[in-house]
Design a protein around this nucleic acid. Structure first.
Lengths: 337, 337
DNA sequence: CTGAAAGCGCTTACAG
DNA sequence: CTGAAAGCGCTTACAG
């Protein structure tokens, strides 16, 4: 039994103010200009204020068909990078008068179905999806108009990162230092973005005439403890003088592995990360890494999703984020053979 | 202009299935038992399924007055601890068929007003607030029935941690090792929980007949780089042989400060953290810290808030989380003077 | 400038 | 077992 005080509605405000319900509605929705006298408006607002009235959002949504809730689906909320994405997205959404429901796709195996349910059930207007798995996008197809994927499958997606120029910068930096044995530590998650990075990395090596052996590739997850073996496999090979990582968290794993393998960073082993999270500057030595404009990406995603929801037909221009190589102290010339 | 396909409603399903709208509603809400024949039910469900129908959540909410969205307000989403709280809360909420809107109170100065707006505007049913500032709770008073505060002001709050027994364990551990100069590194945020910890810490020292000097107290924020000075102030005092921290992130700051001050952990300086986040096991040496049952706390908060929303009158029993001292390798006997 | 009325898509008594 | 109807609290033509 929930009894509670009877809620304040536009009707009760109207009664208290001695006007009609429509007048209250006009005033509260800010559409009273030229339709309601200033006196009436001020009076209604005063009464509404005194009663602590707020228009019922569900009634408004039902009537107008306009929802102001978005979802943001990320692989793992606990990772600082996605915390930053959320904070920036929430802020942009708030400024556009929207709330954000956060979804952790690792934590909820049925997240695709849930997002579809929420969109079709008119609980959310649409959703941003960060870094889809290879098979997620086809399943999201039935609500494609309400979804914006970041770092996703389609080359034509509205918000993406320029993997190619980023990887170019990394490989050219290492090659320029004289490295010829460059290993790659992949993130062990089936994200299309990770596949793209590795594919292009190998292409770039070929273009530069550099060798790449299968044994120079390994994978690891983001749990720092579990990731060490994959990093060690690479760090123990003396031909490898530099390791490129899919993520700064992986680079932290390489630091541990290097310690175990007795290799000093950067003198004996160079390391490059990805994302430039706070950790990159906390590691010792500070990590050379590919910085990604987190805040901008989140803002663009919110704005472009909102545009798309306004009008799915009008193809909005897409935003491709440029990555910036932050050269710090984890890369140096390889030790003399 | 948003045109789009006309949405599927219970009415269109009814028409397609050749039954009344009420029958569709009964079937979809799972209340058809004994009121609709099995044949009709199956037929309606088949048609609804084919059309991809989902009941309009806003219409349902408006009609029933029952909302299934909760808010969770935390000080800083980027901190892994709050990521864990969110993940566990979201899971518990989802199992009770609720969605969670996450609010970063640091990111949104007007969060209190926003939560009040959302509750009164029937956008959310209620909110969990983690670690309020000293002056937040009075401002939340007008929606007290819809709010549950964790680690808050009131001793009678529904979900809290047992600060006293936790601090007891820490101080007794250090005193037992022979420490007499125990410093305290506070979190520089105006949270009531931090004040409580420090107050009780000093009381406990008094009870054990141990001295505490004002100079042995310092504060720091959680940005690892900015926090170092506060930690250094403590680490440079040789009378201090152990430092208790309000958070593991602060303990990480002490590790850096100790390196600068030339003090080895634990031989020359003991350190104790708070929360036992993943970082605690990544630090070298692994950190002795007070573990908090993150998942349980989040679950209890969701369940107790839901109970409270059901019936604000029925005072639910409260849950006080016990803290567990994880003794690892950052604490040892003090060096001989 | 103001108010009466329709209707958004549901749920839920009520009648049959 | 099934359907017609009221009503949740808004917004928005429409009439005056």
């Amino acid at each position: 039994m929930k009894t509670g005080p009877s809620p304040i509605t536009s009707n009760s405000v109207a009664k208290a103010a001695g006007v009609s319900q429509s007048t209250v509605s006009l005033v509260m929705s800010g559409k009273s200009a030229g339709r309601v006298s200033d006196n009436t408006r001020d009076h209604v607002m005063a009464v509404a204020d005194k009663l602590g009235y707020r228009p019922n959002a569900t009634a408004r949504m039902l009537r107008t068909g306009v929802l102001n809730i978005l979802a943001l689906a990320v692989p793992n909320v606990k990772q600082p990078f996605f915390g930053e994405i959320f904070v920036a997205a929430e802020k942009a959404a708030r400024q556009a008068d929207h709330a954000v429901v956060l979804i952790d796709t690792q934590n909820d195996p049925k997240w695709v179905e849930r997002i579809i349910d929420m969109v079709r059930g008119r609980m959310i207007a649409g959703s941003i999806v960060y870094a889809s798995d290879s098979d997620d996008e086809p399943r999201l197809a039935e609500i494609a108009d309400q979804v914006l994927v970041i770092e996703g499958q389609n080359s034509g997606s509205l918000v993406d990162i320029n993997v190619e120029s980023g990887v170019d910068a990394v490989v050219e930096h290492l090659a320029g230092l004289g490295h010829t044995g460059i290993g790659y530590l992949s993130a062990d998650y089936p994200k299309v973005t990770f596949q793209r990075r590795f594919d292009y990395f190998r292409k770039k090596l070929r273009d530069l005439g550099l060798e790449f052996r299968n044994a120079w590739h390994s994978g690891a997850t983001f749990e720092i403890e579990a990731s060490t073996p994959g990093a060690e496999k690479l760090a123990r090979q003396r031909e490898i003088t530099a390791i490129v990582c899919d993520d700064d968290l992986l680079a932290a794993g390489v630091y541990r592995a290097a310690r175990k393998a007795g290799r000093a960073i950067p003198d004996n082993l160079s390391v490059v990360g990805f994302n430039d999270i706070e950790l990159a500057r906390v590691l010792s030595p500070e990590l050379t890494t590919l910085a990604i404009p987190t805040e901008r990406i989140a803002q663009e995603a919110v704005h472009k999703l909102l545009e798309k929801l306004e009008d799915p037909a009008r193809a909005s221009s897409s935003y491709e984020a440029e990555l910036t190589l932050k050269i710090r102290f984890s890369t140096a010339r390889p030790a003399k053979g």
